[in-house]
């Protein structure tokens, strides 16, 4: 079996939050995190369902891509799912602000794409050579260095979300473990 050129980390990270929060603020903080780290940001899904008596439902999907070297690319995917969305106006320090009351699920996933320029996909011979090289020489570097790096950096994004939502279980002791590359 050929070694895959798209290696997804098997562990997904899930956050669920139910309550009042500033969704616009969270959205821009997360986009800011991706952009400040050089990810090319793409919102591939935006679904808004007709509101029921309990509120609206939204599904949003993002994909962030970053060319780390000319051979490796980091990919971060974010999926939002919100239920029972209602807008609430609150007054904080004399200022009126619109907040969102909803149930929200965020799923974070990451992957590494190797040979994304498809240099070794031009002929069957080079495909065979690259497959052998990935399988027997680079495998540990790919899985233990590159995939682990993007995986541990993803926890920094998770922490940004938790901090923004002011969740009780926030913080990340692994913050500098694999660098952050801001």
């Amino acid at each position: 079996m050929a070694y895959p050129t798209y290696i997804e980390h098997p562990s997904k990270i899930m956050i669920r939050y139910s309550g009042l929060f500033d969704f616009d603020g969270l959205y821009s903080v997360m986009v800011g995190w991706l952009k400040s780290r050089g990810y090319w940001f793409h919102e591939h899904t935006y679904k808004h369902k007709v509101p029921s008596p309990y509120g609206a439902e939204q599904e949003i999907g993002w994909r962030g891509e970053k060319e780390v070297t000319d051979y490796y690319k980091f990919i971060v995917t974010v999926s939002f799912h919100l239920w029972d969305i209602t807008e609430v106006e609150v007054e904080k320090a004399g200022e009126k602000k619109k907040l969102t009351n909803a149930r929200m699920e965020i799923i974070l996933r990451c992957a590494v794409e190797i040979d994304y320029e498809k240099r070794f996909a031009k002929s069957t011979f080079w495909k065979f050579v690259s497959d052998w090289y990935h399988k027997y020489i680079l495998r540990r570097t790919i899985e233990n260095v590159w995939v682990d790096t993007v995986y541990h950096r993803l926890y920094n994004l998770q922490n940004v979300i938790k901090e923004y939502l002011d969740m009780e279980a926030k913080g990340n002791e692994y913050e500098g473990y694999m660098g952050d590359n801001v």
């Binding site: 562990s11 990270i13 956050i15 669920r16 279980a169 002791e173």
Partner: peptide, 28 residues
């Protein structure tokens, strides 16, 4: 609770465990 979470996280870091926070659910 925040301190407890940080303590558990740092214990795993010190012991050389790789992190996997499968779920973090908070309902207000």
């Amino acid at each position: 609770l925040h301190g407890l979470y940080r303590m558990i996280d740092s214990w795993f870091y010190e012991k050389g465990y790789d992190k996997w926070e499968l779920k973090n659910i908070e309902q207000v």
